[in-house]
Amino acid sequence: MSVGCPAVSVTGLYKSFVDGNEQVRVLENLTFTLPLHHSTALVGPSGSGKSTLINILTGIEPPDAGAIRLFGETVSHSSQKRWSQLRGQCIATVFQDANLMPTLSLANNIRLRAQLAGTSDANAEHWLNLLGLDNLGHRFPDQVSGGQRQRAALAMAFAMRPALLLADEPTGSLDVATARQVADALFHHQQDTGCPMLLSTHDPVLAARCDTTLSLMATGLGDP
């Protein structure tokens, strides 16, 4: 990975799905860059391809066409092994729900994520305290609230010290107050570490807190 290159650079990205007999184009000729140290809001109506884009950027879904560069490295045609390395060590992903192993305590979830990222100095308690989850490390995911679970998911993501943070509607299932706490945690981390972040959301207030906005239309459009 090259220093000084944009975190993400996407050029002419195409993606379509087959729905019955119909070919549905989700992303069409999408081109954008995510600068280093910036937060970017990914907005658009349901079905506009926000989750698809995040899946493509994590190598879970291949694009039909187009080039993707992460920190200067062309990864569009990388092997699954390379994508696993990128997901394990560079890219943190936070989903709307089910980010934790239900059979592990919150602290062990954080340690597991750090272990997979190869971060040997993971101090689970530190990250839990940072996210206001003091003394909850021994609890299991089903023993804490939805907001606490989501903050624990952020702690996991932060503990791996990611190079890129992708969040797919991380506050989508939370009430307003809890959503704000989670968003605060995300933005504080981004500001403290300068970790580039792509935040998919339907919430205009949350989108407005980001440095830039990437808006997808129903057929997939570039940066406005």
């Binding site: 899946n55 989903f95 089910a98 089903d142």
Partner: peptide, 20 residues
């Protein structure tokens, strides 16, 4: 791992969400 499985599993209230 597939987009469909991610969509299915990361929806809120999925049975696996807190299935310890």
């Amino acid at each position: 791992l597939s987009p469909a499985s991610i969509r299915r599993s990361t929806e809120p209230h999925h049975p696996s969400g807190t299935g310890r």
